[in-house]
Computed example of a mutant assay.
Amino acid sequence: MNRRNALLLAGAALTVPQITPARAQEAWPVRQVRIVIPFAAGGPQDIPARIIAERLSRRMGATFIIENRPGVGGGLGAQMVAQSPPDGATLLFISSSISILPTLQKQLNFDPLRDLAPLTVVCDVPAGMMVRADSRFADLPSLLAEAKANPGKLTYGSGGVGSANHLAGAQFAALAGIETVHVPYRGVSQAVNAIYTGDIDFVFGSSVEVLSHHRQGRARLLGMTMPERVPAVPEIPAIAEYVPGYAAPNWFAMFAPKGMAPQMMARLVEELTAMKDDETLIARLGPAAAIIRMDGPGPLTAQLSAEIPRWRAVIERAGIGGGS
């Protein structure tokens, strides 16, 4: 190879896009990015979302801020993101309730599979069935026995009609062959307070919201909603051990508006998947038994596609109607 050809090849190599550490210094197309959480401030999504926002702000040449947009069971904020320009200025951080919205909130003018671009599942967040520490229910079999002997007597709370934890309870009753009464609250924290005042018998809540009560000895977790025992709390049985076929996975995920430029999508996915081993995320979510995923768009698309029809069946069987 002569000197002229070598110089041409070297120049060409410099023009080929490559993923290098310098990518962290590339400016994002907008100066400020909203990460919309479609629930009230102070919920379990806020912790990981703020950690992610801080890291993306450091690495992407823009300021990422959290914006809570509650309403319609998460549908209001999700719809806003779906209808936003795909210019990189708006992202969505939402729970597995996104798989419930298409069936429960038919008045919404968007479809998550059609109108949102999946970025990644952030983490799996197991949910648990909790009773007060001095409850007469020492374990799940004792609760099931009383529920079968007294149909319609036991009450359970959740964070609202149509919430993921409401449906976790509805599916539990259907598969266990029991009849329970759902009592909705404005958030799981209010439902937990109702446990302590004796207004309800048990509550379904994410591990972020209920596990600390169990560890402090103030309450007792009778079972977890994941298909198998959760590694962080192996002493707590999976509900499926007593109610075959039961599973109510709970997870947090991020989406962008559909139509974002492929290069921008790739950059976001690159930065998010690199957070799988982020020490701050692990330190904050590990004690709550959350399992960091950050596994990209494919697994999120597959999970959402499978769960939308599954929750549709639960909603229709239980006769749960949506609200405005």
Score class of each variant (00 low, 15 high):
A302E: 14
R58W: 03
P48V: 00
F252E: 05
E271G: 08
H214W: 05
E179N: 10
L76S: 13
A89L: 11
V121L: 08
V233N: 04
A313P: 01
G74C: 07
L221N: 04
L272S: 02
A232R: 03
P126K: 00
A176D: 04
A127R: 07
V314I: 12
G42P: 12
L268W: 13
S305F: 12
R215Y: 09
I19S: 06
G319E: 00
Q32A: 15
E241S: 11
Y242V: 10
S84Y: 14
M60I: 14
M224A: 10
Q105K: 14
E270N: 12
I19L: 10
R59C: 02
E228P: 11
L140N: 03
V33S: 14
A191C: 07
L113H: 06
E235H: 03
N165Y: 02
L108A: 06
D278M: 04
K106N: 09
E54K: 15
E67G: 08
P112M: 09
P237L: 06
V131E: 01
E241F: 13
G321M: 12
S84R: 11
V243S: 03
L101W: 01
S99P: 05
T20N: 07
P21R: 13
M264Q: 13
V192D: 00
Q25I: 07
P17I: 14
A127V: 11
L304E: 00
V81D: 04
M129Y: 07
A89K: 10
P70M: 07
M254I: 15
I200N: 10
L154M: 13
V161R: 06
T301P: 09
L91C: 09
V81W: 02
L285V: 13
G74S: 07
L285E: 06
R132W: 01
I35N: 01
T20R: 11
A127N: 12
N165R: 02
A274S: 10
R55S: 02
E307M: 10
P299L: 01
P231Q: 11
A194E: 10
E67P: 04
R136S: 04
L144R: 09
A168V: 04
A13N: 13
G187A: 10
P257G: 14
P102K: 01
Q171S: 07
G159E: 03
A164S: 11
A22C: 10
I320K: 05
S212W: 15
G11C: 13
G217F: 09
L144S: 07
A40H: 15
H214E: 05
Q105C: 06
F255A: 06
E307I: 00
N68W: 09
A117Q: 15
G177H: 08
F255T: 06
M224Q: 06
F204H: 07
P299Y: 01
E235W: 02
I308H: 03
L300S: 05
A41I: 13
R4Q: 15
L92I: 06
I320E: 01
I195T: 10
P244Q: 05
G42I: 13
I52Y: 01
M275R: 12
V181L: 05
G217W: 08
T197Q: 13
T273L: 09
V203G: 02
E271H: 15
L119A: 01
S135G: 02
A288F: 03
A219M: 05
S207R: 00
V16N: 10
T197M: 13
S99Q: 05
H166D: 00
G75I: 03
V30D: 08
E241K: 12
